[in-house]
Design a protein around this nucleic acid. Structure first.
Length: 288
DNA sequence: AACAAGATCAACCGCAGCGGT
DNA sequence: GACCGCTGCGGTTGATCTTGT
């Protein structure tokens, strides 16, 4: 790929932990020249390592902008949320946590979050009704405040796993809908999938009924998929921004895991604010 | 203090995908 | 189309650290 291999020599590559001197060499080289072709880095930087090892060291440890130290509760929640949707796609999860590496997230998951998550699932299954009541309270709070910390503003039950979430989401939403009467459910239900390319979104308000909205997206195969608003899958869509006329508004139905949108918004309430009328959503590369 | 068990984390390994030849 | 090399990813390993007895 336009890069002559300098890494295929017979010389033995050093393994194991990196010394401060090696770190310095690698850092200096990449800072000056960029990494270019990784296989040529060790030779050019004067290291007895292979390109792969250099790459890993740079990405996981030397790269500027890396956060060190403990994960915050917010980061933790983001990981749990994304893991629920994406599974073990550590690199994709890492894209939504600036300064964190996939390796770091993976380690954190296996050493801590995995256990925590399973505990929560157990607890939830024992006390689902309590959760629903809790959500009702949270929703009530949210209706008075659009921008709140993600912490405690959603429940992890939405993220247990994709299949069950779809079912549970629908059921719990139905329960809450019933309990709220005319009020519509706006619980955070994040089930978005990375394969979605959010190109179009059309909706029309009439009586405020859920099924009045329809979402359309085009994937890479140019075949359209449609979701009605009442469709649990639709509830799972993580939407970045919506344009109402010329005005851009965040309308995500769940937590916004994006850097700039670490808040939770009530999707339906906002729709109610901006409706009636047709609206479109323009989400740019949210999952990249 | 000594040891064992568990937790943490950096690094390695193998594989898949991609692009060049 | 087959082969090759490079990159990136996820799973796994093993050294080190921490905690409990």
């Amino acid at each position: 790929m336009g890069c002559k291999s300098l890494d295929n020599t017979k010389k033995k590559h050093k393994k194991g932990l990196w010394s401060p001197d090696e770190d310095l060499k690698l850092k200096n080289y990449i800072t000056k020249h960029g990494h270019g072709c990784w296989s040529s880095v060790p030779t050019n930087a004067g290291l007895q390592r292979n390109g792969k090892s250099c790459r890993l060291r740079w990405i996981n440890y030397l790269r500027p902008g890396l956060k060190r130290g403990a994960f915050t509760s917010q980061e933790e929640e983001i990981i749990l949320a994304f893991h629920q949707v994406l599974g073990n796609k550590w690199s994709q999860i890492a894209h939504h946590l600036p300064g964190r590496t996939d390796n770091e997230i993976k380690n954190y998951w296996h050493s801590y979050l995995k256990k925590k998550n399973s505990r929560m699932v157990t607890t939830e299954s024992n006390d689902q009704n309590a959760c629903i009541n809790e959500q009702k309270n949270q929703e009530s709070e949210l209706s008075h405040s659009s921008f709140k910390s993600t912490q405690q503003n959603y429940s992890f039950e939405s993220f247990e796993n994709t299949e069950t979430s779809i079912i549970d989401t629908d059921q719990s939403m139905q329960q809450i809908d019933n309990s709220r009467g005319a009020q519509k459910c706006s619980l955070p239900k994040v089930l978005f999938a990375e394969w979605l390319s959010l190109d179009q979104f059309h909706g029309q308000n009439s009586s405020g009924e859920a099924a009045d909205f329809e979402y359309t997206h085009n994937n890479n195969n140019n075949d359209n998929n449609n979701f009605s608003y009442g469709d649990p899958l639709f509830h799972g869509l993580m939407l970045n921004e919506a344009s109402f006329g010329n005005e851009m508004k965040p309308i995500t139905n769940g937590i916004c895991v994006d850097d700039m949108l670490q808040s939770q918004f009530k999707f339906e309430d906002q729709l109610a604010d901006y409706f009636p009328g047709e609206f479109t959503v323009d989400c740019d590369d949210f999952f990249l």
